[in-house]
Design a protein around this nucleic acid. Structure first.
Lengths: 124, 124
DNA sequence: CTTGACTCTGACATTGATGTCAGCCTTTAT
DNA sequence: ATAAAGGCTGACATCAATGTCAGAGTCAAG
């Protein structure tokens, strides 16, 4: 199939499909006219790529285990668990940092509101 | 004072001080030789900028209320509360998204581990 | 007068997946 | 045959604060 059809079936833009290829995630054949020629199985591959991108993994990380995952169950691919765990640690650090900021924002909002309430009291 | 000294006193790089100026956050005078000439009060201004940057606000947002905040109490600056609240909403959305990813990662890690345990059982 | 430490401006790099455009070729439908 | 639709490559833009470099001017101490 051609790239436009694959894009339509996967919901991924033509631009992104070409990018995934550049990152080594998919390797379509070429027709005589130079057009990319995708196997129908590529739909599943792209769905898998989407899944890992949604977990926050980079195309580079995905490239590291995609071939294995497409052939086996995840549990068989030893590379993947460390990646998951590293990502989890990273995500949790980000959450903590955002929670810190959130707390600071709440404090400041409360401070502004109480100062205003005080001013209002003085005026009354 | 010159830019190097201000950088040292505030812990902000020379590069960033010039950037803040470009964004309209600080407007130093110029000496006859073209060197920036900062008032000692600018140390406080830069500390204030750092504070808001740490809350995740952009220089553009900070520019919108910095003058007011430097002259008055925050509560007096009506622009600031909506910005805080918008930022809070944004931060909370990000936290939620990260928590979603975190949950998915935990699920997949657990799945891999249980599949492996099963394989080990079969082998024994 | 020279050297080193500062300063100035302007510009490019960073990060990563995606959007978008230009210029050109191919296919399909009219 | 022509025009529209789609494909190809290559390139720049995005977002934002900061790092870093180049080339040039300034100042202070020796």
């Amino acid at each position: 199939m051609k790239i436009g059809q694959l894009a339509q079936e996967t919901g991924v833009s033509v631009r992104s499909l070409r990018y995934y290829e550049q990152q080594g995630l998919i390797s379509p054949l070429r027709q005589a006219n130079g057009y990319r020629d995708y196997s129908p199985l590529t739909v599943h591959t792209v769905d898998t790529i989407k899944l890992y991108l949604n977990l926050g993994l980079s195309t580079e990380q995905i490239a590291g285990f995609l071939t294995c995952v497409l052939r086996n169950k995840e549990a068989f691919c030893t590379e993947i668990l460390p990646i998951y765990e590293r990502k989890l640690t990273e995500i949790e650090a980000q959450i903590q940092q955002l929670n810190q900021i959130r707390g600071n924002l709440l404090d400041r909002i409360a401070a502004v509101q109480s100062e205003r309430a005080e001013e209002d009291t003085n005026k009354e």
